[in-house]
């Protein structure tokens, strides 16, 4: 039983953070989380770096653009 639990937690580690929380739509208003997916310069991390799945990476891309327009996130920082 313990072995199965450990195995599932190990599997979750590599999954997309939005898939883990079963987020259907990435919201631009949740910009503190979006800021974690950006570099110190304000550029979006790659999928390899952020661990996002393709679907959520596309949603994050659009959400970051809206958040930048609403002055919630910088276009260029650092």
């Amino acid at each position: 039983m313990n072995g199965n639990k450990r195995y599932s937690s190990f599997g979750d580690r590599g999954r997309c953070r939005f898939c883990r929380t079963k987020t259907t739509r990435v919201n631009f208003k949740d910009f503190p989380q979006l800021m974690k997916l950006c570099t110190t310069q304000g550029k979006l991390f790659s999928r390899k770096r952020s661990g996002n799945c393709a679907r959520h990476q596309r949603q994050v891309k659009l959400a970051v653009k809206v958040a930048r327009r609403m002055a919630l996130m910088p276009y260029m920082a650092g």
């Binding site: 590599g14 953070r17 503190p32 800021m35 974690k36 997916l37 950006c38 570099t39 110190t40 310069q41 304000g42 991390f45 390899k48 770096r49 952020s50 661990g51 996130m73 910088p74 920082a77 650092g78």
Partner: peptide
């Protein structure tokens, strides 16, 4: 005021040790 890039997630290819992607 949270700094950008404040997450320590290193991606699926990292083994958790130091090094890896960056």
């Amino acid at each position: 005021e949270e700094p950008l890039g404040g997450d320590d997630f290193r991606g699926r290819w990292s083994s958790g040790r130091s090094g890896g992607f960056d």
